[in-house]
Design a protein around this nucleic acid. Structure first.
Length: 603
DNA sequence: GCCGTTTTCGGCCCGACTGTTTTCAGTCG
């Protein structure tokens, strides 16, 4: 952690607490004290609003956060006001920062890092690597030839730090592995668990659960999977391997009567499991991956539902299991009824080869129709985006007549003409008002000059939202997972402006974007902002990405009512900002009505 | 360091695997 010039955000505060937890662990502090710092770090990182805002409401507001008490609330205030912590300075004075780096090496935890420092004086990762190479490490009690080799490999891996994969990539790796396991007659039950089942936007490793009476046979088949490059652990109920992609995969095998308990346990998250098990403790129950036990008697665990029921809860969808209040909401009967893919009736952000799409207007519309959508908005780029050959006013007028012709051919889906209008550097729109007025849907987005300071970027977007024709703000933070951080922008202000002006905020379903993030979705929903889920499709196959957007909306606690493109067309148009009181063109109205009946499965 | 449907003190989720030593500590999830 460094002293920061600007104010600390939630991630900065969470990282500071995590680092403190590492240092305390090396310092042999009480394990529960260490855990308290980690719990608070998770709470803050997944908070729906800036921690500074909570702090501004007073120290009591901080203490109301789960896992934050008097002491940690004071430390948050200290961090926000000074950028550092007295405790951290004290620990740093006696423990080199390199010890925290050493803990990142697989096989090195707090105990060994401390041992290497105390006995060999190792202070950095490089020193650890050198000691492993020279054989010096083996003079430490508990370190043999094998651990020395593992640590050496771990040091090398630090230099090519493996990153988390996008969820779509993890899906692509998981599917063939699951199919391979399913071929074995020993595999009775099979599910992916972990963060992939919770549908997190990025995935660190694959967790696979099998129900079987022949665990050894399943484990043996798993480690023989052709894509396995390394076996890290090979036990009877648990195996860990590294796949050719560099991704780690864990297998756990349990008997069928334990399957639900194991699925719950391995789905996580850790914070969620701790919350559920704590409820079990109150009821004098022991919950582990083998079942729910009262004393030695198993009282449940064949299904997940039995686990939840044992502690008096309804089943909680995996997407909500992040320890962000879902257990309390379930207890109070306040879980949202999450939307589903089948609820989506249209896609409102679709490109064609008129700008940077790969398919023609006709191909995209037919592909949308094949998904049984009631409506689709064609939203090509405007001309300021030079790299993609956007359209100007004349271009959109030409496209309108093409759309009208195609609409006559395809009465069972309503084709809306829209645009993804560039928000210029000063917040003006890249299309004249008259042309904007001709469009059915106006989607606005920032694409250029993405490195502006926060105040200017925020003003820029707020000015665009103030334009009466802007109806949807696309990929609001501009992030690209793994390659570009979100713009510096005050999303609390953007959300408030969207609410006040009736602008819809997009959940962009592209797996590299998933923008808004789950916590921002939650924050927007709480503020009463309506969302739309769009694929930003540039080819027909992209329309299938809608499921990733739905996953993200579910992680943000959205029900159908929170997402505008679950509405029938007439209702969707009615909530669009600046919508006319009565619908125009009678032929369009007729075709809309037919399309909606088709979607609802009516004659 | 947090927290309260038994508690303001005394708990805190729970187990598997590995490498090492020879009964277990450390790490990991």
């Amino acid at each position: 952690m460094q002293l920061l010039s600007g104010p600390m955000d939630n991630v900065d505060v969470a990282r500071a607490f995590e680092e403190l937890a590492d240092l305390l662990e090396i310092d042999r502090a009480n394990v529960f004290r260490v855990r308290a710092y980690r719990t608070a770090a998770r709470t803050i990182e997944s908070l729906g609003e800036p921690i500074a805002k909570v702090a501004a409401r007073g120290v009591t507001a901080l203490e109301e956060l789960p896992g934050v008490g008097k002491d940690l609330a004071a430390k948050i205030v200290e961090l926000l006001s000074t950028g550092n912590l007295e405790l951290r300075r004290e620990l740093a004075a006696k423990l080199p920062a390199g010890l925290v780096q050493m803990m990142r090496v697989a096989g090195v935890g707090p105990k060994r890092a401390r041992l290497f420092y105390d006995e060999l004086g190792l202070e950095t990762l490089d020193a650890l690597e050198a000691a492993a190479k020279s054989g010096e490490l083996r003079t430490v009690r508990g370190i043999g030839e094998v651990l020395e080799r593992h640590i050496l490999e771990g040091c090398a891996a630090q230099h090519v730090r493996s990153t988390r994969l996008r969820i779509s990539e993890a899906d692509a790796h998981a599917a063939p592995l699951l199919a391979y396991l399913k071929e074995s007659p020993a595999v009775a039950l099979l599910d992916v668990a972990g963060s992939l089942r919770r549908r997190r936007e990025t995935i660190g490793d694959l967790d696979i659960l099998v129900g079987s009476d022949e665990p050894e046979a399943v484990a043996d088949r798993f480690v023989r999977y052709p894509d396995v490059t390394k076996v890290l652990a090979h036990g009877t109920t648990r195996c860990t391997v590294v796949l050719r992609s560099g991704m780690q995969a864990d297998l756990r095998v349990v008997p069928a009567e334990s399957y639900g308990a194991a699925l719950h346990y391995f789905t996580g998250s850790k914070a969620h499991n701790i919350a559920v098990r704590a409820m079990g403790v109150h009821r004098k129950l022991k919950i582990n991956e083998y079942g729910v036990f009262r004393g030695t008697r198993r009282i449940g665990g064949r299904t997940e539902d039995e686990v939840f029921r044992a502690v008096g809860l309804p089943w909680i969808p995996p997407e909500l299991r992040e320890g962000r209040g879902e257990v309390e909401a379930a207890r109070d009967g306040k879980l949202p009824r999450l939307l589903e893919l089948i609820d989506v009736r249209g896609d409102l952000h679709v490109h064609t080869d008129a700008s940077d799409g790969e398919a023609t207007l006709r191909e995209m519309v037919l592909a949308a129709r094949a998904r049984r959508y009631a409506y689709v908005a064609i939203t090509d780029h405007t001309k300021a985006l030079r790299v993609v050959q956007g359209l100007d006013g004349a271009g959109f007028r030409r496209q309108r007549s093409e759309i009208d012709a195609l609409q006559r051919e395809c009465p069972d889906i309503t084709i809306l003409q829209g645009a993804e209008v560039d928000i210029l550097e000063d917040g003006r729109l890249d299309l004249d008002d008259e042309s904007l007025g001709q469009l059915d849907v106006v989607v606005a987005a920032v694409h250029t000059k993405v490195n502006m300071p926060e105040a200017r970027m925020t003003d820029r977007v707020l000015r665009a939202l103030a334009h009466p024709r802007v109806q949807i703000l696309a990929h609001p933070t501009g992030r690209l997972l793994g390659s570009r951080e979100p713009y510096a922008i005050d999303m609390a202000k953007v959300i408030a402006a969207a609410r006040d002006r009736g602008v819809l905020l997009e959940i962009n379903a592209q797996p590299a974007r998933l923008d808004l993030s789950d916590t921002l979705v939650h924050m927007a929903r709480d503020a009463g902002v309506r969302l739309v889920i769009d694929t930003d499709a540039h080819r027909t196959s992209d329309l299938a990405l809608m499921s990733y957007g739905v996953d993200q909306a579910r992680r943000g606690w959205c029900s159908r009512a929170d997402v505008a493109n679950t509405l029938p067309l007439a209702e969707f148009r009615a909530i669009l900002r600046g919508a006319p009181a009565v619908s125009h063109s009678s032929s369009a109205a007729r075709s809309r009505s037919r399309a909606e009946h088709a979607h609802a499965g009516l004659p």
